[in-house]
Design a protein around this nucleic acid. Sequence first.
DNA 1: TAAATTAGCTTACACATGTAAGCTCAAAAT
DNA 2: ATTTTGAGCTTACATGTGTAAGCTAATTTA
Lengths: 206, 206
Amino acid sequence: MGIRALQKEKTRRALVDAAFNQLSAERSFSSLSLREVAREANIAPTSFYRHFKDMNELGLTMVDEGGLTLRQMMRKGRQRAEAGGSVIRISVDTFMEVLESNPNVFRILLHERSGTSAPFRGAVAREIEHFISELTHYTESTTQRHPALARVQAESLVTLVFNAGAAALDMKRVERKKLADQLVVQLRMVAKGAEALQKKQLPKVS
Amino acid sequence: MGIRALQKEKTRRALVDAAFNQLSAERSFSSLSLREVAREANIAPTSFYRHFKDMNELGLTMVDEGGLTLRQMMRKGRQRAEAGGSVIRISVDTFMEVLESNPNVFRILLHERSGTSAPFRGAVAREIEHFISELTHYTESTTQRHPALARVQAESLVTLVFNAGAAALDMKRVERKKLADQLVVQLRMVAKGAEALQKKQLPKVS
DNA sequence: TAAATTAGCTTACACATGTAAGCTCAAAAT
DNA sequence: ATTTTGAGCTTACATGTGTAAGCTAATTTA
C-alpha cells in the first residue's frame, strides 16, 4: 500500500470515527451534517466527497461495520458459554457488556431500523437477519427443534434482546442489571414455549 | 364555546392533522419544519406560536393523541373477542387493521420510541406502559397467572407486537398476512412458555 | 357603545446547510 | 526527469430554517 493510499485510509477512518463519536442519546446519524463530521475529522467540508459520495454512503458503511462488530462480539460470548453455564444468561451478559462499551454502534442500528431511509432500514434488517440466522442454526444444532419453529423462536429472541437493548441505553448500571434479569426470564419463557409447541405438534414421539 | 375559541380549535386541529399527514415512511416528525406544517395548515409560520410553544409541544400532543387512538381501537378489538374465538388471533387482526388505516399514528410512536428526544422517548414509553398494564390486568383476570409473571409475559407480547407492526409498515397486504400468522405463533409461544414457567414455580398445585 | 384582547398576518434577520468551481502540491506513473 | 493524478484546500452561492417586531381586524368584555 502506497504512502498516499495509506493517508487516505487514515482520513476515511477519521471520518467514520468522527461520525460514531458524534452519536449519542440526543444525536442520531441523520441529524449529523456533512460539515459537522468533516469538522470533527479535521478536514474541509468539500474534502468529504473524496471519500464518500454523500452522507448516506457514510451511514451505510457505519451500519455494516457496526453490525459486524456486534456479531463478532456475540460470537465471542457464545464461545465463552461453551465452557459451561446457561447460554441464555451468558449471552445476555455479553450483550449488555457490548452495549456498555459500544453504545453508539448499537444506537445506529436501533435508530435506523425505524428510520426514514429505506436503504438504511434495509441495511439494518440485513444485519438483524444475520443475527436471527446464526441463532436459528445454533438452536437447530443444539436441540431437536423443527426448522420452521426454530426460526420463529430465534426471531422472538432477537426481537426481545434488541428491545431490551434499546431500553438499556437509557439506564444506569443498577437498573440495567434488573433489566438483564427480566430479559433472561423472557428468553427462557420463549424457549419453554417453543418446546411446548414442538411437543404439541409431534405428540407421536412421547 | 365562543365563535373565536371555536375557530382557534379548528386551526389547532388543522395543525395536528397537517403534521400527521406529512408523516410517511420517508418523513419522521423530527424532520418536519415548523414552516412546512404551517404551510400545510394554511397559516403563516409565525401564527404557529399562537397554538404551540414550539414543534416539540406539537409532537408530544401527537404522541399522546396517537397512543390514545391506538388503545381505544385495541380495546374495541378485545370486545369483539368476547363474542368468542382466539383472543390472540382477533387482537392481531385488529392491530393489523388499525395499522393499515392509521399508519402514521403508529409511525410516530415507533420512530420516536428510539428517537433523539428524551421527552419524546418518555412520552412513548408511557403510552407503551399503558398497553402493557392493560394487558397484564387482562391476563391476571383471565388466567391464574402470578402477577410478576403476567407482567413479564405482557411485556414480551407487546414487544413482539410492536416489532411486527414496524415490519408490517414496509409490507404489502399479502406479506402482511403472513407476518400476522407468524406473529400469532410467536404470541402463542410466549403464552405457552408463561404457562410452563408458572407450573414450574408452583408444582404443589398439580 | 367603547375598550381590550387576540388569531393571524407581513416583513426582516442571522445562521447553517449542501455543494459547485477551481487551486495547490506531493506522490505515483511514465 | 517529466507528466499525471488526486487528496485536500478556499471561496462562493442559493436555499431553508426559527423566530423577533409590530400591524390589522374581528371578537369579546365591560
